[in-house]
Amino acid sequence: MTLRDLLQRDRARRTTLVTGQVTPEAGRCVQCGICTYYCPINIDVRRHAWLGEPVQESHCLTCGECVARCPRGVLHFERIELFQP
């Protein structure tokens, strides 16, 4: 990976960080636990998937690990409007 790639990735991540949240689709989830297992800061992502609620915890890094690891496409990033009227 070149330095430019790295910087670009970092920028993409920052953008996600401010405008995205991990959103589950409960109807696809089988509670296998892979998302929770791989969360670097131990958020119980699976619980959010059960409840069908976005991961809104302020300390979620939006690192994308759970989204990428989920074997069933339950999780995706959803844009959020930061500055809602």
Partner: peptide, 8 residues
């Protein structure tokens, strides 16, 4: 527990 999880 998650039965599908048994595979993983």
């Amino acid at each position: 527990y998650s039965r599908p999880g048994l595979a993983y």
